[in-house]
Design a protein around this nucleic acid. Structure first.
Lengths: 207, 207
DNA sequence: GTCTATAGTTCGATAGAC
DNA sequence: GTCTATCGAACTATAGAC
């Protein structure tokens, strides 16, 4: 559960104490949402997990939904940066997709708590926040779909339905957050490597 | 949303009226749970969706959780029968896994509303009910893992990690329930066929 | 078997002392 | 900035009339 939810903060800004408290609340909310879901979590649950009174929550966040939104925003931005960074590692579609899948999948295992909340609590966001998150999601999906279609057009991949195959690749990574166990047999990196192989097989026809 | 949640009932049993009401309540609960989640759904939501008063719900089901359990049980049994039936179609692992994936995936698309509830609301079940559902799940997972390992041992598949590959195959089907849209470009059967192909590619190494 | 009415609890969020 | 105390609403489930 050691998943950092804080943004990097310059030291000695004077608001360091407040940032720590906000971070502790985000961590508490993340663990609560992951365990019982957004609607199954009360503000008292979050306050207890953070070692504070229910009233203290509202000094730092206006509503319970605001906590979910900040978590969703942080998680989606992390994923976007991981995918962008991996895609920039090469100009070859096959090497790009391998890097993306390895890191995307490993992230969903390593940060399975946040990944679960990010992937499955979106309907609990208010319409404004949901749209902001959906925009980031569409960017991530488009980036992966682009790699598949570019590789298919270049003859690097042999796929009959690039758009559906891109969805399948996303599904593999996303669902790792559901079944991954910290005390399981495989590390996040091992899962990422194996899934990278499986993905390249999906993208290349047998002879 | 035309997803039948009722068990087949012999006509003219005398309790036909009661069965219809129970079925309407299950349908209402299913749609509500799928839209807002179990904890986000009130018994008034379910009653409204079924065209009844909140009190009428409790004549047919003891608690809100009982409704979720009956839905989960029905959904999991449907999946188990689909997987068992598909596996019985052949003795060749490659044909077995193709049939299983085609039908498993198509089911998750066609019954995406139930699939979503079945796959993601398990933590809301009470411990007794959760264990009963988990037993069915383990059977389904074991059945698919068995096909993969049998095929690997027979040299029919070439996989470095059969257990993880079996999880990947399950993930592909499960996550279809998240992204499938009834007004989308592909039918459940089309998705099933494509996913059957992708799965066979994953199970066979390139030369 | 279904209704209206409501009991008893818990919820999200706020007031005001310190 | 954190606390105790609490408001008003919404919740699950039940009581009792019909």
């Amino acid at each position: 559960m050691n998943q950092d939810t804080s943004e990097s903060t310059p030291a000695g800004r004077g608001n360091a104490r407040g940032e720590v408290t906000r971070s502790r609340l985000l961590d508490a909310a993340l663990r609560s949402f992951a365990t019982r879901g957004f609607h199954g979590t009360s503000t008292r649950d979050i306050a207890d997990a953070a070692g504070m009174s229910p009233a203290a929550v509202y000094i730092h966040y206006r509503t319970k939904e605001e906590l979910l939104f900040q978590l969703s925003l942080s998680g989606h931005r992390q994923v976007r940066e991981i995918v962008d960074g991996a895609a920039a590692e090469s100009t070859r579609p096959d090497e790009q997709i391998r890097q993306v899948v390895e890191r995307y999948t490993a992230w969903h295992a390593r940060h399975h708590t946040m990944a679960h909340v990010v992937q499955h609590e979106m309907p609990a966001l208010n319409p404004t926040h949901a749209e902001e998150i959906a925009t980031i999601r569409r960017g991530i999906e488009a980036r992966i779909r682009k790699i598949v279609t570019t590789g298919a057009d270049a003859g690097c991949f042999e796929v009959s339905n690039p758009a559906m195959t891109a969805l399948a690749i996303l599904s593999l990574g996303i669902d790792v957050a559901r079944w991954y166990r910290e005390d399981g047999a495989w590390s996040p990196d091992e899962i990422g490597n194996e899934y990278g192989e499986l993905t390249l097989r999906m993208l290349t026809s047998r002879r």
